[in-house]
Every structure is written in C-alpha cells, then in structure tokens.
Amino acid sequence: MNKILLEYLITKMTAYFFVAFGIVLGGAILGGMAALLTRQPPFHVMYELAIKLKIWGMIGALGGTFDSFMQIERIFADGNMSPVIKQIIFIVSAFVGADTGTRLIHWLVHGEIR
C-alpha cells in the first residue's frame, strides 16, 4: 500500500473517530448539565443521551448525510472495489468512536464497563 494513501487513511480514520466520539461525549455531558439546571437526574439523562447520540455521532463524522452509503452504491455499480473498502473503513472508524463515547459515559455514570 502506498505510504501517502496509508497516511491519508489513518488521518481520516482518526478524524472520524474523534468527531463521532466528541459528538457523543460532548452532547451527553452538556445534556447532563442541562438536566442539573432543570432539576432532572443528570446521570440518567447523560446515559440516555449517549445512547441516542450514538447514531448522530456517526452521521456527523461522516459528513452529516448518507453520502458514504450512496458512494458505496455507485462504486458497486461501476465494479471498482477499492473505494468501497475505504468507505467501509471510515464508517467503522466513526462507529467505533461513537461506541467508545457511549461506553465512556456508561462507565462514568454507572462505574462499570459493559
């Protein structure tokens, strides 16, 4: 694999991971602060928000739309598989970031790793 392509993939994977992670973590923490202001149980709200924000973390990391999935469909029609693999790697990276954010909130709220 070309060194420039590998650096590009690692850079993009890292960015997708941390954007998805940040959306889940930031949204849950700020939602917990809002729960404090409105006299709701903050830890419960944080955990529920983390679960609900998981998919939005992935969508936000991938650009806010389902363009990645549409690009995969076009590539299958053309028969070129290399970009499909790249897009799948990016989707998995965003999923892992969102899931890590959700698990971190779960650990912070419940004190255990599931």
Rank of each mutant, 00 (worst) to 15 (best):
W56I: 01
T65V: 04
L108S: 06
T102C: 04
I59F: 05
G22H: 03
L37R: 01
L104K: 03
F69V: 15
I55D: 02
I10M: 13
G27Y: 00
E7L: 13
I29L: 09
L25R: 02
L36Q: 09
T11V: 09
F21V: 00
I51M: 06
M13T: 10
L5R: 13
A61T: 08
R39I: 14
L30Q: 15
W107N: 07
A15T: 13
L30D: 12
F18G: 02
T65L: 07
I91Y: 03
K12M: 14
Q40E: 13
I51L: 07
G63I: 04
G57I: 00
A15H: 06
F17D: 01
V96T: 12
D99S: 11
I113Q: 12
F66T: 15
I72N: 09
G97Q: 01
D78Y: 07
H44M: 14
F21C: 01
Q71D: 13
R74K: 15
G22M: 03
T14S: 13
R39M: 13
A94N: 06
K54L: 11
A50P: 03
N80E: 10
G101K: 04
I75A: 15
Q87Y: 15
L9V: 15
M1E: 14
G31P: 00
I51R: 08
A98T: 02
Q40V: 12
I10T: 06
E73M: 09
A61M: 05
V24A: 04
L108Y: 10
V96A: 12
P83I: 10
R74G: 07
I23Y: 01
K52R: 05
R114Q: 11
I91S: 03
I29G: 04
R114M: 09
G111V: 00
R74Y: 07
G31R: 00
F76D: 13
I89E: 08
F69E: 03
F76R: 15
V19P: 03
N80D: 12
T100W: 03
V19L: 10
K12S: 07
G32L: 00
V96K: 02
T65Q: 06
M58T: 08
E48S: 12
E7D: 11
L108C: 02
I10S: 05
F17R: 01
K3A: 14
F21R: 01
T100S: 15
R103E: 11
R74P: 02
V19W: 03
F66L: 14
G63C: 11
G79P: 12
I88L: 15
T38E: 08
A35L: 05
T11N: 09
R39F: 15
G27R: 01
R114H: 12
Q40T: 10
L108M: 15
V92N: 04
M13V: 10
R74H: 10
I51C: 00
A94G: 04
G60M: 02
M81Q: 11
G27V: 00
I23P: 00
I10N: 06
V24P: 01
I72F: 07
T65M: 09
I10K: 11
L6Y: 09
G32E: 01
R39L: 14
G31T: 01
T100D: 08
N80V: 08
K3Y: 07
P41L: 06
A50Y: 00
N80Q: 10
I59T: 08
P83Q: 09
V109P: 09
K86M: 11
I113F: 13
I88N: 00
L30H: 13
L9K: 06
G22Y: 03
H106I: 02
F66V: 15
L5N: 13
Y8S: 14
